[in-house]
Structures are given as C-alpha cells and as structure tokens.
Amino acid sequence: MKRDMLCLTEIIRTIEKMEYNGDVAPAKFTVKGYSKKKIDYHIQLLKDADFIKTGINEQGRELPTRPTWKGHEYLFQTLNSTVNVVKEGINVVEDLM
C-alpha cells in the first residue's frame, strides 16, 4: 500500500481531538473517507515515525491513544503551512515529515 500523506494528516488530526484516556485504546476509530484497512496501515506508519502512541482495544485492534510531542509538532507545522500546501502541493507536507 502506498503512503497517503493526506490520510496520515487526517488520522493525526482526529487523534488530537480525542479525549485522553491514558494508554487505553478507543473501542473504535474511523476517519471519514478512508477504509479500516487504510487507516490501520497508516496508524502503523505514524507509530513507526514516533508521531503517535497506540494500544490494543478489546477487539484486538491496535489504535491510537495520543499524539507524541513529534506528532503535535507535525500538526502545528502543517496547520501553519496550509497556505503553502495549497500553493505548492503535497510535497510541502512530505518535507515536514
């Protein structure tokens, strides 16, 4: 599966909006417009890059529990460079990673 930078960004934005429950993974996790398989793959990429922490929910699915410092910084940079992304395309977001 190919890495989808917009999917990664939407996942981490969704995580930042979640209520913090320690290391307890949520019962479910969805991002509008993306399949469960694609979300799960990109969650692993975010975990590999140390952008998020994960836990295993009751159904055995590994889901995000919170963003890391690096994940928060990524969001801050992407939100502050939205104008550049629109003007210059997705390469700007990839450069931030």
Rank of each mutant, 00 (worst) to 15 (best):
M1V: 09
M1T: 08
R3F: 04
L6R: 13
C7K: 07
L8M: 15
E10W: 02
E10A: 15
I12H: 03
R13Y: 05
R13D: 10
T14A: 15
I15T: 08
K17P: 00
K17R: 15
K17T: 13
M18T: 06
M18R: 09
M18V: 12
E19I: 11
Y20S: 01
Y20A: 03
D23C: 10
D23A: 14
D23H: 06
V24N: 03
P26D: 07
P26L: 06
P26A: 10
A27V: 11
A27K: 13
A27T: 14
K28N: 14
K28H: 14
F29S: 07
T30Q: 14
K32D: 15
K32S: 15
G33V: 11
G33K: 10
G33C: 12
Y34W: 15
Y34I: 08
S35C: 11
S35Y: 04
K36A: 14
K36M: 13
K37Y: 07
K37H: 09
K38S: 09
I39M: 07
I39Q: 01
Y41A: 13
Y41C: 04
Y41D: 15
H42K: 08
H42R: 13
H42P: 03
H42Q: 09
I43Y: 05
Q44H: 08
Q44D: 12
L45V: 14
L45T: 06
K47W: 08
D48R: 10
D50W: 13
D50M: 08
D50E: 15
F51C: 07
F51V: 07
K53F: 07
T54S: 06
T54V: 10
G55F: 03
G55A: 06
G55W: 00
G55M: 06
Q59R: 07
Q59K: 14
G60S: 09
G60N: 01
R61W: 06
R61M: 11
R61T: 04
E62T: 08
P64R: 01
P64N: 04
T65P: 01
R66I: 07
R66W: 03
P67D: 09
W69E: 14
W69G: 11
W69P: 04
G71Y: 00
H72S: 02
E73L: 12
E73V: 09
E73I: 05
Y74R: 02
L75W: 02
L75Y: 01
F76H: 12
F76G: 02
Q77A: 14
Q77H: 04
L79D: 12
L79F: 10
N80A: 07
S81Y: 04
S81M: 09
T82Y: 08
V83C: 00
N84R: 14
N84F: 12
V85D: 00
K87M: 05
K87S: 09
K87V: 04
G89S: 03
G89R: 01
N91A: 05
V93Q: 02
E94G: 04
D95V: 00
D95Y: 02
D95E: 11
D95G: 04
L96M: 13
M97N: 08
